[in-house]
Design a protein around this nucleic acid. Sequence first.
DNA 1: ATGGACCTTCCCACGATGGGAAGGTCAAGG
DNA 2: CCTTGACCTTCCCATCGTGGGAAGGTCCAT
Lengths: 138, 138
Amino acid sequence: MNIGEAAERSGVSAKMIRYYEEIGLIAPAARGENGYRNYREADVHRLRFVRRARELGFSVERIRDLLKLWSDRRRASHDVKKIALVHATALNADIEKLTALRDSILHLAARCHGDERPECPIIEDLSGETASAQPGRH
Amino acid sequence: MNIGEAAERSGVSAKMIRYYEEIGLIAPAARGENGYRNYREADVHRLRFVRRARELGFSVERIRDLLKLWSDRRRASHDVKKIALVHATALNADIEKLTALRDSILHLAARCHGDERPECPIIEDLSGETASAQPGRH
DNA sequence: ATGGACCTTCCCACGATGGGAAGGTCAAGG
DNA sequence: CCTTGACCTTCCCATCGTGGGAAGGTCCAT
């Protein structure tokens, strides 16, 4: 099948399929006489694997590792689990960072009257006018 | 003062100061006879404002708006608050998305033995071998 | 005068994705 | 047979904010 059909059936855009090939995440596809890429079922499976891993937020580099383990019949599930847990830990760090930002902003916004007057603790905080310590800021 | 001192005193790298000038976030600095950029206290204040807003996760475009409001003595705090709340809402969306990813991964990892055997629900999920619905996936 | 610490501009890279141009190929219908 | 439209190819550009580094000019202290 051509790249368009592989894209449709895997849920990975043709653009990204070419990109994944370029960076060596998937093997270069066989080419027909016309230069078109040829895909088989196994390629679609592989692309679906990549898509699902991307949907779970794994980076392309991590997916490279996961693909190796997927095709390794003698893999230890320990190795897969470790990758997953490291990723979950990274997500947790991101979540906590964003949560701290959100809370800082909500804290400031709660003190802002939000009317027609110019006085605003948000602007004052950004301009460094407030000497008082803000939670989550140091 | 030169850009190096402005960078040190504002906490914004010289590289980024030039970038902010290039994209019009800050006005082009005055130049000395040698072509060096000249900065004054007011410029350092402005840079600090930008840095703090970046630390709170505001995009450069949003900071553009905030800077306008900062220098507008007749601003309505309502406008500032709105920008902050929109940002907080966006952060919330990001947080929820990441939390869903993390939970999906932890759910899979919890069912992975993590030993020397190859069987692994994580790999099975990614390869589409499981027909069972996963929470948070549809 | 020499060296080192500055400064300047310009280009490249990141990560993953999309947009689009320019040109080749194929299949269906007139 | 020819046209049309839907494919395919490669190549370049943009995102967003940041850093790295090269090549070259400037300034100051020794």
